[in-house]
Design a protein around this nucleic acid. Structure first.
Lengths: 148, 148
DNA sequence: TATTGTTATACTCTATAACTATA
DNA sequence: TATAGTTATAGAGTATAACAATA
C-alpha cells in the first residue's frame, strides 16, 4: 500500500502510468475504428512497408521490435489475407523481401486515413503547441533527436 | 506512400506514433525486469487491488478497461498462482470481491519496487520539469485534471 | 429488466528454442 | 561461425456471445 519512494522515481512512475493509460485508452478508441480488419501489429507492419517497401524480415524484425519467429507468423497471416507477398532476394539467397500488394496498399491507405482522423479527434484536447511538446518529449525519451 | 494530410492530423499522428514507440520500448525494458513472473495486465490488477483491496470484478472491469469475461480469466490465473482470492460479498450475492493474499502483496511490493527503479532509469533522459510536463500533457489527453 | 459474473470459442500476439539454408 | 528465416510449442491476452443467478 502506498509505498514511499524517492521523488525522482515517483515522478517517472507517474509519467509511465499516464503513458500506459493513454496508450490503452487511445488504442481502445482506434480498435473500434480498425475493428478486426487490421490489428495494431499488422498496422505497424503495413506502415513500415508503406514507408519502405521490400524490406527483409530481419530489417522489419529490428525496426518493429518483434522476434524473427513471430514476424514470420505476422507476415504469414498478412500474406494469407493477400496484403503482402514474399519475394526472394536475388543477391542473398537467405533473405526474403516483403512487398505490399495492391490490396495491401489500398487497405493501408484507407485504414491510415480513418486512423489518422480518429487520432486527430482523440488528441483534440491538446493545443497544437502541446502536441509538438508531447512529441518532442517522447522523442527525447526514445533517445532521438526531435524529428521535424 | 507519404499520403498528404491536414497539419492538425499530421501533428496528432506524429504524437501518437511516438506514444506507441515509447510504450513498446519502455514495456520491453520492463518485461526484462518483471520477466514471466508478472505480466503487465497482471501488474495492473495487483496495482489496482493495492490501491483499493476487495474491489468487485465489475469495478475492476471498469477501471482496467477489460471485459468481464476476460477479467474472470485474469483473476483465475492470479488466484491459481496464489496472488489473490475471491470472497463472496455479504450484501450482494451476485458480487465477488477480490483480495490480495499475503503472497500477492509481497510479490506486488517487490515487483513494484524493481519496476519503479527500472522505470526511473529509463526516464532519466528527461529533466524533472519535463517529466512533470509529460505527465500533465498525458493527463490532459486523458481528459483528467492534472494530479498532484 | 438490468447487473454480476462465468463459460466457451477462436484468434492474435508473444516468448522461447531448435532447426535449415545460406553467407 | 554468424545470419536469415522457419517451425514448434505453450501461454497470455482479447473480442464476442450465450448463459445463470441475483437484484
Amino acid at each position: 500500500m502506498g509505498v514511499t519512494r524517492p521523488p525522482a522515481e515517483r515522478a517517472a512512475l507517474r509519467a509511465w502510468v499516464r503513458l500506459l493509460q493513454a496508450h490503452k485508452t487511445v488504442l481502445g478508441c482506434v480498435r473500434e475504428e480498425l475493428s478486426g480488419e487490421v490489428t495494431l501489429p499488422r498496422f505497424d507492419l503495413l506502415s513500415n512497408l508503406d514507408r519502405e517497401d521490400g524490406q527483409t524480415l530481419a530489417q522489419l524484425s529490428r525496426r518493429m521490435l518483434v522476434t524473427a519467429g513471430n514476424l514470420t507468423g505476422l507476415v504469414d497471416r498478412a500474406e494469407r489475407d493477400g496484403l503482402v507477398e514474399r519475394r526472394a532476394d536475388p543477391d542473398d539467397r537467405r533473405a526474403t523481401r516483403v512487398h505490399l500488394t495492391r490490396l495491401g496498399k489500398k487497405l493501408y491507405a484507407e485504414a491510415a486515413a480513418r486512423h489518422s482522423r480518429r487520432i486527430a479527434g482523440r488528441f483534440e484536447a491538446l493545443e497544437p503547441a502541446e502536441l509538438e511538446e508531447l512529441a518532442r518529449l517522447l522523442d527525447k525519451l526514445l533517445g532521438k533527436e526531435p524529428a521535424r
